[in-house]
């Protein structure tokens, strides 16, 4: 499994992000510098067919949305 590593800045902190693919799905795993547990996020489809960022497992939806936007910005910046 190939893993891509990069960093994003969230609330003045630099966070490590790992990108990996399993079962045809791309995941991003974000590590935090303090005792916050790592977060895994991915893109999913809502009922109307629109994509949204979600945490996996469930429960950290808000953070997934915030971090997901930063991941998108990172990819736009390297194009």
């Amino acid at each position: 499994m190939e893993i891509e590593l990069f960093q994003i800045t969230y609330k003045d902190a630099s966070l490590d992000v790992e990108r990996f693919d399993i079962s045809g799905q791309t995941f991003f795993r974000i590590s935090f510098p303090d005792k916050v547990p790592p977060l895994t996020i991915l893109r999913a489809l809502n009922f109307e067919g629109a994509k949204f960022w979600t945490s996996m497992p469930e429960g950290r939806y808000q953070l997934a949305e915030e971090i997901g936007i930063l991941v998108e910005q990172y990819y736009r910046s390297i194009k």
Binding site: I22, L42, A44, L45, F47, T54, S55, P57, G59, Y61
Partner: peptide, 27 residues
């Protein structure tokens, strides 16, 4: 209708996400 992380999703998307949870946890 199902919800995943508070978002309204289809049944098939819900099952897909739940399945991926396990794949991630215990690939």
């Amino acid at each position: 209708m199902c919800y995943y992380n508070g978002q309204k999703v289809t049944r098939s998307e819900f099952i897909r996400l739940k399945n991926l949870e396990k794949v991630i946890a215990k690939y």
